[in-house]
């Protein structure tokens, strides 16, 4: 069907739809673009001509220089990376193992255990903070990255087990039974099924990565020291102190957003597929 064959009314409708979508896309991007753009400008230009792109006259890296010399951003970044990667690894290992057990074996209490694990999908872990802090103190884990890792793993497991076991149920039985006849151990069979649900695992990982990386609450409460700050908490406190130094504020905002935006561009397909496939269920 070519364009000219379309009735006028439909063309009008399509145009209106595009206008609405473009308008909202601009609203979604404008604030972020404004901050990134102005982070490369001199102080005067930030206030006088915020809408203009940096040019030869207004271009400046002074904000970035302040941020990199004053705040321990590389160390914050490393902490966030450790916490996120190790939590995801634990969610992956413990989550696939539990999902395998729940989907593969019939044992008394199987359904009940599934329900027990699913409780955490709806109840926010934050409500247990008072006791989490006490527990972490009792375990001498206060102000360590390990405390954050354990909490995030507990937070991510319910949805991971739920989604992964749904997918594991769809793996044909014959495949596993054939392996059993060949004398494979149950552990081997588990390890064999993991690659078969790779897309689901990818989705679960991307899905957990964002809230872990962006969390402010638990770093603030469990690991607030300079040595263990994550980038989200580090940025929050840096921004609070340098509130009047707009060059530094804009640069640190851009720096903190950059890794997430890069990851998002790389994984957006996976993330969006996860959101949409989860909803159909």
């Amino acid at each position: 069907m070519n364009r000219s064959a379309r009735p006028l009314g439909q063309t009008l409708q399509l145009t209106l739809a595009h206008v609405a979508l473009i308008a909202y896309t601009l609203i979604a991007l404008f604030p972020v673009a404004l901050v990134v753009m102005n982070s490369f400008k001199v102080r005067n230009a930030i206030f006088k001509t915020p809408y203009n792109l940096p040019d030869a006259e207004s271009f400046s890296l002074v904000g970035y220089e302040t941020v990199l010399s004053r705040a321990a951003f590389p160390s914050y970044f490393l902490n966030s990376l450790i916490v996120t990667v190790v939590s995801l690894l634990l969610i992956f290992i413990a989550g696939t193992m539990a999902a395998h057990a729940l989907s593969e074996y019939q044992f008394p209490g199987n359904r009940l255990l599934g329900l027990y694990m699913a409780l955490g999908i709806m109840v926010p872990i934050r409500l247990g903070t008072v006791s989490i802090l006490r527990l972490v103190v009792d375990l001498s884990l206060v102000d360590t990255l390990i405390a954050l890792i354990l909490v995030y793993t507990a937070m991510g497991l319910p949805l991971a087990v739920f989604v992964l076991s749904e997918f594991m149920r769809q793996i044909p039985r014959d495949l596993k039974d054939a392996a059993r006849v060949d004398g494979a151990s149950e552990y081997r069979i588990y390890w064999m099924t993991v690659p078969l649900i790779r897309p689901a695992i990818g989705t679960v990982m991307v899905f957990n990565m964002i809230p872990i990386w962006n969390d402010l609450w638990f770093p603030l409460i469990l690991a607030p020291s300079e040595r263990n700050k994550t980038i989200t908490l580090g940025a929050q406190q840096f921004l609070g102190q340098f509130v009047s130094d707009w060059n530094a504020v804009l640069s640190s905002l851009s720096l903190a957003a950059l890794p997430v935006i890069v990851l998002y561009v790389l994984f957006s397909r996976q993330l969006i597929r996860g959101l949409t496939s989860g909803a159909v269920k």
Binding site: M97, A98, G128, T129, L135, L150
Partner: peptide, 21 residues
């Protein structure tokens, strides 16, 4: 073996704190 790691971490750091709180 398959269930223990998930149940342990989830119970200790999510269910127990919620109930204890």
């Amino acid at each position: 073996v398959f269930l223990t790691p998930a149940l342990l971490i989830y119970t200790a750091f999510m269910i127990y704190p919620l109930v204890d709180s």
